[in-house]
Simulated assay, not measured.
Amino acid sequence: MTDLVDAPADPVLAVALRGGVVERRHRGAYAVCAAGGEIVDSAGDVERRILPRSAIKLFQTLPLVESGAADACRLDARRLALACASHEGSAAHSGQVAQWLAEIGLGERDLMCGAHPPKEKAARDALRAAGEKPSQLHNNCSGKHAGFLTLARRLGAPTAGYVAVDHPVQKAAQEAFSQAADEETPMGWAVDGCSAPNFAVRLRGLALAAARVADPQAGFGCGLRAASAARLRDAMIAHPFEVAGAGRACTELMEAAAGRAAIKTGAEGSFIAILPAGDGRPALGVALKIDDGATEAAECAMAALLVRFGAVDPADPRVRRRLAPAYRNLRGVDVGGLRAAGPLDTKS
């Protein structure tokens, strides 16, 4: 277990400043790949396996589309985006999941993601005013789990226990992700916050998987997987609100990208970006991991990478909020902020 503390240090990717003094340093690693597997930019240990958490929801959703379940249940692009989401639990999000489940003859009780309060304040206030408790519909992963249940029905598999790693739904998810990331199976895994398996992957492999979705024909060929990956990518790009919610980084950065990127965060400082080709830009996949798991630092580093590869304008206020968030004290005085650093320093 010595590697837990003796691993080589990754470079500093973001720093918190106060009055020009560094108060906090966030180390991490990133890889940027083309669909053929070539690394076009990287820093830190990109061969170390990480748990990408919710950053891989698109890949967990691939079998829903490939199996024909999405078309059989007439899932539109909005619901496909919701299946790839870590949503706010707003009425718009939870209501869509409730309707989806009802249409396949299931309900909130069939979910296995667990309940937590909605992240959106308006939804929390509405529950409090009504004297109601949060339900599993408010779980940020409820869309993904609705997709799991839909796939289970399509496969003729039990809906009970669909989060078990040996359930046909999770076997399909592992196969899709391992092939995209060029990882051998069985993959290492751990139980995620929503109780589904989360599969360990090299950062380089995660970037490759994202790149293959950015250019599905080059990454997967001309078959069903390529078409399914493109469909999920385009659904996320077309419906950024469903993927996260108002004010969230994924939603605002995709809105700022205006079709140039599908972006998905995960817990503990993980992030991916899928950058389709266009306007002279090559198709690329980006994978990022901040070692200490700081969300703010991950958002800052990802914004810097999106700027570097032409997906967003650094002057866009939605980008600036992540690229250079300001810190203000209780009197509203600007006392510092977070900045990209080291290999991501925009001034270097």
Rank of each mutant, 00 (worst) to 15 (best):
12 V>A: 01
14 A>T: 02
16 A>P: 00
26 H>I: 06
28 G>L: 03
34 A>G: 10
37 G>S: 10
37 G>K: 08
38 E>L: 13
42 S>Y: 04
47 E>D: 12
51 L>P: 01
55 A>E: 06
59 F>T: 03
71 D>W: 13
73 C>S: 04
80 L>P: 00
84 C>M: 02
84 C>S: 06
85 A>Q: 01
88 E>C: 13
90 S>Y: 05
95 G>A: 14
96 Q>E: 15
109 R>V: 07
116 H>G: 04
116 H>P: 01
120 E>T: 07
132 E>I: 09
132 E>K: 15
135 S>P: 01
136 Q>N: 13
139 N>Q: 13
143 G>Q: 10
158 P>T: 07
158 P>I: 03
159 T>W: 13
162 Y>S: 07
164 A>E: 14
165 V>P: 07
166 D>G: 05
174 Q>I: 04
175 E>D: 15
175 E>P: 00
177 F>Y: 10
180 A>F: 09
191 V>E: 15
193 G>R: 12
201 V>F: 04
214 A>L: 14
220 F>V: 08
220 F>G: 01
220 F>E: 07
225 R>I: 09
234 D>C: 02
235 A>G: 02
237 I>W: 03
241 F>N: 05
242 E>V: 04
242 E>F: 04
243 V>T: 07
250 C>A: 13
257 A>Y: 02
260 R>H: 04
266 G>W: 11
267 A>P: 09
279 D>K: 14
286 V>R: 03
292 D>A: 12
295 T>I: 11
295 T>K: 14
301 A>T: 09
305 L>H: 03
312 V>S: 06
315 A>V: 06
316 D>A: 12
318 R>N: 10
320 R>M: 15
326 A>C: 12
330 L>G: 14
331 R>N: 13
336 G>A: 12
340 A>F: 12
343 P>S: 11
343 P>Q: 06
344 L>M: 04
345 D>P: 01
348 S>V: 10
